[in-house]
Simulated assay, not measured.
Amino acid sequence: MSLSNYIDHTLLKPSATKTDIKILCDEAKEYRFHSVCVNSYYVSLAKHLLTRSNVKVCSVIGFPLGAMSSDAKVFEATKAVEDGAEEIDMVINIGMLKSKNYVAVYKDICDVKLAIGKVTLKVILEISELSKNEIIKACQICLDANADFIKTSTGFSKGGATLTAVKMIRKSIKNKAKIKASGGIKDLETALKYIDAGADRIGTSSGVSIVTEKKSPVESSGY
C-alpha cells in the first residue's frame, strides 16, 4: 500500500478558512491521501471540492474535549454524514472514563455508532490524559461498542501519539479494530515508525511534507 493511503490530511485549527480547506482538498487529490479530516462545519464544502476523486471526507465530532452530551455528538455526527462525511472521528468522554463510569462511556460511543450505521467510526482516546490501565479499558469499551478504529489523540492536548501507546493498543485489541495515530507526526521517519508499530492510519497536517520527503531505505519495505 502506498504511504499516501495511510494519511488523513488534517486541518482542524479554529482559524481555518474556506481558502485553507480548498488548499487542503487540492493537496489531498494531488497526493492521493486517504481522506481529509475537517471540522463538521466544512464537511459539505470538502465533499463538494473532492467530487470525482477517491479522497474521503472525515469529520471530527465532540472535538476536542469530548465532554458534550451524547445527544449533541449524535446530532453533529448525523449532520456530518448527511453533509457527506464518510468517516467520523469522535472524542471519548474522558471525564466519565476517569470516573470509572464505563456504562456512560460505552453508551456515548454506541449512540454515535448506531446513528451513523456503516460509516467508519474512529474513537479518540486522548492518551496524554490517561493511564496505561485507562487506555486498555478504553480499548475494550471501544471494541464492545463496535468502533472501527481507536485513535490516539486530538493533537490539541498536552501530548500526541506515542509509539508505546500504539503498541499497547495493538496488543490490547489485536486485529479486532484498526488504529489511527495522530498528534505530532510530522516527518517520514516518524510516520513509518508508527506504521511499523501497528498504526493503520496516520492523522497529520504534515502529509505533503511526509510523502515528498526523500525516501529512506526503510520505505522500500512496501509503504
Rank of each mutant, 00 (worst) to 15 (best):
P14T: 00
P14E: 07
P14A: 04
P14L: 04
S15D: 15
S15N: 09
A16V: 14
T17N: 13
I21M: 14
I21K: 00
K22S: 13
I23D: 03
I23A: 02
I23E: 12
L24I: 05
L24W: 00
L24D: 13
L24K: 02
A28L: 13
A28V: 11
E30T: 05
Y31E: 04
Y31N: 04
Y31D: 04
F33I: 11
V36K: 10
V36G: 12
C37Y: 05
C37G: 01
C37A: 09
N39C: 10
Y42F: 15
S44C: 10
S44M: 08
H48A: 13
L49W: 01
L49Y: 06
T51V: 13
S53Y: 03
S53L: 07
S53C: 02
N54V: 05
N54S: 15
N54W: 01
V57M: 09
C58M: 11
C58E: 01
V60T: 10
F63S: 02
L65Q: 07
A67M: 08
A67C: 06
A67H: 12
A67T: 09
M68Y: 03
S70P: 00
A72F: 07
F75L: 13
F75V: 12
T78E: 11
K79S: 11
K79G: 01
K79Y: 08
A80N: 09
A80P: 08
A80W: 12
E82F: 01
E87W: 00
E87R: 01
I88E: 09
I88P: 00
D89G: 02
M90N: 04
M90G: 02
V91K: 09
N93L: 06
I94S: 07
